[in-house]
Design a protein around this nucleic acid. Sequence first.
DNA 1: GTGAAAGCGCTAACAT
DNA 2: ATGTTAGCGCTTTCAC
Lengths: 335, 335
Amino acid sequence: MTGSMRGRPTMKDVAAAAEVALKTVSRVVNGEPGVNPATAARVLAAIERLGYRRNESARVLRGGRTATIGLVIEDVADPFYSEISRAVEDVALRHGSLVLSGSSREDPLRERELVLTFCARRVDGLVIVPAGSDHGYLLPELDAGVAAVFADRPGGLEAGPVRCDTVLCDNAGGAHAGTVHLIRHGHRRIAFLGDDPSIFTAAERLRGYRRALADAGLGPDDALVAMGPAEGSGAALERMLAGPEPPTAVLTGNGRITVAVLRGTRHRPALVGFDDFELADVLSPAVTVVAQDPAGLGRTAAELLFRRLAGEHGPARRIELPTRLIPRGSGELPP
Amino acid sequence: MTGSMRGRPTMKDVAAAAEVALKTVSRVVNGEPGVNPATAARVLAAIERLGYRRNESARVLRGGRTATIGLVIEDVADPFYSEISRAVEDVALRHGSLVLSGSSREDPLRERELVLTFCARRVDGLVIVPAGSDHGYLLPELDAGVAAVFADRPGGLEAGPVRCDTVLCDNAGGAHAGTVHLIRHGHRRIAFLGDDPSIFTAAERLRGYRRALADAGLGPDDALVAMGPAEGSGAALERMLAGPEPPTAVLTGNGRITVAVLRGTRHRPALVGFDDFELADVLSPAVTVVAQDPAGLGRTAAELLFRRLAGEHGPARRIELPTRLIPRGSGELPP
DNA sequence: GTGAAAGCGCTAACAT
DNA sequence: ATGTTAGCGCTTTCAC
């Protein structure tokens, strides 16, 4: 029905239409017991007729949960994060919750603004992929009762880590495995193209790469390491390849960098990419990758969050998801 | 400050701490004029000290806007839709709004549930990529004052289209152009692999393909058309290729189908894909595509929405964004 | 320039 | 089984 009253119908309107008290409508709407079926039917009919929908703001104001969680990622349009989004959304849906999401664009200030805006909207909890490293701003909110889980990167505080559950990938282990794989295939001069080392995952992957070299008795060579945004990766590799002692293999530090290398470099050395991507198997040679589990990251983070929301106590947990090396050809090329 | 009171501080608490009346705090929080700077400073200090944040639910209840819009897409993890998400999010941010998003998974019931749940949360407006074709459920909400814009596909009603702004791609035109391109390169037997024709975009693209064939005097051949989810596309093409009069070229109806074909078929005929995708240029041969503009779709839809929210009146608009054929090699192969 | 009071739509606690 | 009352935290009159 296209109502003729100004604004939306309220419980009061429904009560008047069904000739019952406000509270009876509330009981029916909330499925509370102790309502005569006949009365309930009358109320339901009035609800239908007026097109009534409960005003959630009022319910929340009264002290209820919002049944909404906030999600802060770096960029929805990046497949890695959109996988996380989907997983978080799925878990939220199973728990009857909605997701407010926002992209931080790797800007700590935007992250902070998003989180605080979400909190003003009284989200029940937050899944955060940290862009910044100082999460002091979160403490009052945690005190006030919001739950928070960090995903992909740990949340930080001057005094140490924030006491929140955290789900990470085994970044160092994955980079180590990728590097070892190249070494096993005969490579001695292996380049690493990673993102800015101020980003946790980038630093961890660099660490894993270096450890693998050291384990194999290969000295580090700074000329083979380039850290920074993907835009510069292609050029950086070109420079290395044009140098006096060019690398015979490359480990790329994330999906965007892998793509930049695939697109930007004519003559390609052996390649292992960190993070899997669509069509990696269709390229020739197909691209060997260290696969992360973004869906697992999102799912686990959301599940931890809802467990906390369900009242689970105990110390903050830190879960590290394993990576998986998928040989497809590019990482098995000889030097 | 990590407050010691139970719950969050309210305006009342701030008023008490600053020794002013509630209303003065409200004035400061909302930047209303007519407050003595010294008083304002005292209030601000109290706000800072207590870690006060306005309760948005209360403000909304009082009749304010939620500064939140709802976005319903098919699947966040699909690059086409995640591009739309990003664009919508960007526009929303510029307008000081947040985005509640949800994936319909191509299920009309989920779409309906998401939209109605968003409305119960009193979103100011909605951007909807319709999964269903009957949007009668929207009418009461539109009456109640929510704005809605359809993106990628039109919203429907038994009595005709819903009177909402709509932003579409030129699906038929794009498919027509792709088909003409293949015809120009000498192909006469051109297959079309599209999604289920109950999906608006799939039907439109099929229409464009057929029209191009007719324009060129090529009779339609149902053996060269396969409509359905991407999972079956590879096999469908294999069957066609194994048939008595195999196609020499294929037009794929969306990105997922293009990928399915690239992955599933050994021997590939000439190919034009509908919808661009990452690495299309890196494959060999590089993939010729009819590029849509998902970011433009999302941006335009969101901008129309905010224009309506700003009070713009007038009849529902229908905008059709052009597609662009990008020749890269696979579509220029000879028969 | 500041404040007191009413009420947004709902639910929890207490009647009947 | 049903109704009445009192707020949740805020903004909107209107008074000082």
